[in-house]
Design a protein around this nucleic acid. Structure first.
Length: 335
DNA sequence: TACACGTGGGG
DNA sequence: TCCCCAAGTGT
């Protein structure tokens, strides 16, 4: 049986849309037109959507946008593309520079993988971002969503793009649920494939419009149904807006290893030289001197009052992940 | 399959 | 204040 990532876009098995999707499937062209029109006049002007944006620019944006809001990505993306206009430019620098330039976007391993992807593009693709889904999927940090998104948005290919926005729109519009299932299913991929316009250019617009609708109107909390161009076709509205059938479990943060890792990374990002282990374990004041430049993030780290073993786990984890390395007895970003 | 992985804005 | 959540990936 096909895995969730399967991109088979064959004909819709009869009964696939039985759970509330019949009304939508009945008039797909009208749905395509409605979202096309809405997108044409409501889409945000984002730099990675500009005609002159390169595939590299699209790839960088897609990785930065993983689990990260557009407004925070914007300035960092501009900075990255100015400094590294093509993959080979990034590949020529130490991975640590990518991590440092990542700033406070979060999930810094993405920066590491983007750097590794740039190296792979230089070494295995003659410096040009590949346009085929399967080749994109081979790149570090590129999963099924990002591979499909880059193939579609940078190369105009007909791909089944499924992100959290698209899943939510499909859940409401077609399936009549308040939220998509907790994990991406093969059925969701089949549904998405069945809704995709046949024409490649139209499919690209469709993918972008559904995503934009999910981001701007059909939001997770307090959807703006009054502004929705397809509210009259919405299975969830028709069903009387039934509540979610499960409660999403929150991401814990306070007191976790992740919080400590984040604080350590904040220190390493601003450090000019390797940071001695003692500085992580003992407050600078106790050591009798003020470390140069890293005082503020170091103070933030110590305010967490992490247990020694928790600090050890964080440092070991960062070393294991390649986000930090030991140099002359101190911790630093990878060179 | 479920969990780990950063960060900060909005309700 | 606290909690939710944002264009996911890798294990």
């Amino acid at each position: 049986m096909a895995p969730p990532g399967s991109r088979a876009a064959g004909p819709l098995p009869s009964g696939e849309l039985a759970a509330g999707g019949l009304a939508v499937a009945a008039d797909l062209p009208a749905l395509h037109t409605a979202l096309d029109d809405w997108f044409a006049s409501n889409a945000r002007e984002l730099p990675w959507r500009a005609a002159e944006c390169t595939p590299w620019g699209v790839l960088v944006s897609e990785v930065m946008l993983q689990q990260t809001p557009v407004v925070r990505v914007l300035p960092v993306w501009e900075q990255w593309l100015r400094r590294w206009p093509e993959p080979s430019a990034l590949a020529a620098e130490p991975a640590g520079e990518a991590v440092r330039s990542w700033g406070r976007l979060g999930y810094p391993r993405r920066a590491l993988r983007l750097h590794a992807a740039a190296v792979a593009i230089r070494d295995s693709h003659a410096g040009a971002v590949p346009g085929a889904y399967t080749e994109l999927l081979e790149l570090p940090g590129v999963g099924s969503y990002t591979a499909a998104a880059v193939a579609a948005f940078a190369f105009g290919r007909r791909e089944t793009v499924v992100d959290t926005n698209i899943r939510r729109v499909h859940a409401r519009l077609v399936s009549g649920s308040a939220l998509p299932s907790q994990a991406l299913t093969a059925a969701e991929m089949r549904l998405a494939a069945s809704l995709l316009p046949e024409d490649p250019a139209a499919s690209v617009r469709w993918n972008a419009s559904v995503m934009e609708l999910g981001a701007m109107v059909c939001t997770a909390r307090a959807p703006k149904c009054g502004q929705c161009p397809v509210r009259d076709s919405c299975a969830w509205l028709a069903a009387g807006e039934p509540p979610p059938t499960y409660t999403p479990k929150g991401q814990s943060w306070h007191g976790t290893d992740r919080q400590v890792r984040g604080a350590v990374m904040a220190v390493l990002r601003v450090a000019e030289d390797p940071v001695a282990p003692e500085l992580f374990h003992r407050a600078p004041a106790d050591l009798g001197f003020e470390p140069d430049g890293i005082g503020i993030p170091l103070a933030a780290l110590h305010r967490l009052n992490a247990a020694p073993e928790q600090l050890e786990r964080a440092l070991a984890g960062l070393l294991g992940d390649g986000l930090a390395e030991l140099h002359r007895g101190g911790f630093r970003l990878p060179a």
